[in-house]
């Protein structure tokens, strides 16, 4: 298994190289950051100096190679706008997003899996139809609209929750966390809910279809013939089998949410990575955008690897094999 992990990590280098090239070219094509960085009143001389400092006067292939060389030493460039290393900028925003995504997915599983089981095990019942219809709604309502409705309802009308920001944080091992203070939790509720609702719906539907299929399997019949209690059948026989697709989706969604929780973070002014990405794109802050995509790519590689390892633990038929070289 050690070889398997190592092989996958080596493969990821190829993926990272390909992504870096595509992103570098794409960002280059978006527009000229100098227009935004240099003030209107600057002289031609100041302007040229700026271009030279940023290295924008060199040909694109040279810029790319310089970037690659620096990247190998762990330096993904300096933000044009903030003047800080891009990595440092992203990492400083990471805890906020991770916290948001972690609780959103946790909530999605805690609500979605039980609802899905209820719907899937009694698929002809009224309750099941209500749950399944609700899940379509939860999945298809646009995120920004749901966010604004939440604000309207919970902040503007009933004044229960604050509309934006992270609230009071507590620093644990150098990482600022919101969920340890009451004020922080109050700030967390709405963005977590907003991010969680579509995933709750997804978990519900996934669990429901899995359970509906599993309960008709012969092993469930055999378990009933053995006299296993209904709870035992659901817990041991059905849940263990449908956990496999659920783990895949949680993995994919974890990556997706971390990378692109942009809309929710914008609506609730949550100071996370998504918000950083969107401002960086607006300001043509190339190093931050490139570094961001690179880090997200790496994150996906790690997540996929983790999902594969969990697979092997859940399904005895899966053997992690090193590809024959």
């Amino acid at each position: 298994m050690g070889t398997f992990v190592l092989q996958r990590l080596l493969q990821s280098i190829g993926v990272l190289l390909a992504v870096s090239l595509v992103v570098f070219l794409a960002v280059y094509a978006i527009g000229d950051p100098v227009e935004l960085l240099v003030s209107q009143e600057a002289t031609e001389l100041e302007r040229d100096r700026m271009i030279q400092i940023l290295g924008l006067d060199r040909p694109i292939w040279e810029q790319y190679l310089t970037f690659l060389g620096n990247a190998l030493r762990g330096d993904l460039g300096q933000s044009f706008v903030h003047g800080e290393p891009a990595i440092q900028l992203i990492v400083s925003r990471m805890p906020a997003t991770f916290e948001l995504v972690f609780f959103a997915l946790l909530l999605a599983c805690l609500v979605g899996i039980p609802l899905g089981l209820v719907a899937g095990l009694h698929s002809d019942s009224r309750t099941s139809r209500i749950i399944m219809t609700g899940s379509i709604l939860g999945y298809s309502l646009p995120n920004f609209w749901k966010g604004m409705m939440l604000i309207l309802l919970l902040s503007v009308w009933v004044h229960w929750l604050p509309t934006s920001g992270r609230g009071e944080t507590v620093t644990v091992l150098g990482v600022p966390l919101s969920f340890l203070t009451l004020d922080g939790i109050r700030h967390l509720v709405m963005p977590v809910l907003n991010l969680s609702i579509p995933n709750m719906a997804l978990m519900t539907r996934l669990t429901a279809s899995g359970a509906a299929e599993a309960r008709l399997q012969d092993y469930v019949r055999f378990a009933r013939a053995k006299g296993v209690r209904p709870q035992g059948i659901v817990r041991r026989h059905i849940l263990r089998n449908i956990l496999i697709p659920i783990v895949t989706v949680v993995g994919v969604e974890f990556g997706q949410l971390i990378a692109f929780s942009t809309i929710t973070e914008t609506v609730f002014a949550w100071p996370g990575m998504g918000k950083l990405l969107i401002t960086s794109i607006y300001r043509l802050d190339r190093p931050v955008v490139v570094a961001y995509i690179m880090m997200i790519t790496f994150l996906f590689v790690i997540i996929n690897l983790t999902v594969d390892l969990i697979y092997a633990a859940l399904d005895p038929r899966v053997k992690l094999m090193e590809r024959a070289s």
Binding site: D218, Y219, K226, R236, N241, P316, R317
Partner: peptide, 25 residues
């Protein structure tokens, strides 16, 4: 009935691969 099944009356099915749960020992 559940208390009786498997204790006093047991049942065996045709397709033993399908009747055994693939993820349990």
């Amino acid at each position: 009935l559940r208390q009786l099944r498997g204790k006093e009356i047991a049942m065996i099915f045709q397709d033993s691969l399908a009747a055994l749960n693939p993820v349990l020992t």
